[in-house]
């Protein structure tokens, strides 16, 4: 069932020009960033060579690239997630799901799987650029893997947030705006400082602090757990919302 729902959703995503244009635009922007980073690295290289333990290409090119990729997809995500449930409410196709022998959990997971699959495809596309450096130089594959993992976890969490906000309204644009708000807020929340130090709570809540720690190659259980918790929490909220919508009636 989950596969059937996810398959239908992916079909719609890929039949509309939206997914393709977003993939093309982000890929183009990232390629530009990648090339400029690479260029400046090439210019810096003579000076780097004089250092005792110079930072490698992974640190100077790939990590910043993945960082930009994260920000870009953060901006793209709400556009992909906004229609997931809002569109079903609006066009009445939710009735097909509700009258079928599927549970709310399966609906939520099916939708989430579709978006997550799309994201894995995006991350795979992004990863081709850093991996292309393998042709000419050695890169720290462990660190690249950590970076890709962090990106995938971040995107999964964003997808779950987007899914929940999409379940709240029958207006896709409202869902998109809400998702932007929540994601950007979670991204910048650690900027709130008291006396130069970020408050530990805000620091812990922040998407960016966990993401950057993973990106720097520090794979710790607590950071992974944070993303998984956020994802699970939003999925649970979505399921609850679908249930309560059924008992409240059509108030969308």
């Amino acid at each position: 069932m989950i596969a059937a729902i996810a398959g239908r959703e992916l079909r719609t995503l890929f039949f509309s020009p939206l997914a393709w244009s977003l993939a093309a635009v982000t890929q183009f922007l990232l390629a530009w960033i990648f090339l400029t980073q690479l260029d400046s690295y090439a210019q810096l290289q003579p000076q780097l060579a004089t250092l005792e333990s110079p930072p490698g290409v992974t640190e100077l090119v790939i990590s910043p690239l993945l960082d930009s990729a994260a920000l870009l997809t953060l901006l793209v995500m709400p556009l992909l997630s906004m229609r997931l449930l809002s569109e079903e409410y609006r066009s009445g196709t939710i009735d097909l799901l509700l009258s079928s022998p599927v549970s709310m959990t399966q609906i939520a997971l099916g939708k989430f799987t579709a978006l997550a699959t799309l994201q894995i495809a995006l991350v795979a596309l992004f990863s081709l650029m850093p991996l292309s450096l393998l042709v000419g130089t050695d890169i720290d594959l462990g660190r690249v893997a950590a970076g890709l993992l962090s990106l995938a976890l971040l995107l999964a969490a964003c997808a779950a947030v987007g899914l929940y906000l999409s379940s709240l309204t029958s207006q896709p644009t409202v869902a998109a705006v809400g998702t932007y708000g929540v994601l950007l807020f979670l991204w910048i929340i650690s900027a709130a400082t008291s006396g130069g130090e970020a408050s530990p709570l805000f620091h812990w809540l922040s998407l960016s602090s966990h993401f950057h720690r993973l990106l720097s190659g520090l794979v710790s259980t607590s950071d992974i757990a944070y993303f998984l918790l956020l994802t699970g929490f939003c999925l649970a909220l979505t399921i609850r919302r679908l249930d309560s919508r059924r008992s409240q009636g059509a108030a969308a």
């Binding site: 069932m1 398959g7 239908r8 039949f15 066009s91 009445g92 196709t93 079928s100 022998p101």
Partner: peptide, 28 residues
């Protein structure tokens, strides 16, 4: 159970065949 609501729950961007396969899979 089979249910046709007042507004048919159709996915306008699918073909008839694709849609019916989807509906059939959903219905188990």
């Amino acid at each position: 159970l089979g249910y046709l609501p007042e507004n048919p729950p159709l996915h306008r961007d699918l073909t008839v065949d694709e849609y019916l396969v989807y509906a059939g899979r959903l219905r188990g």
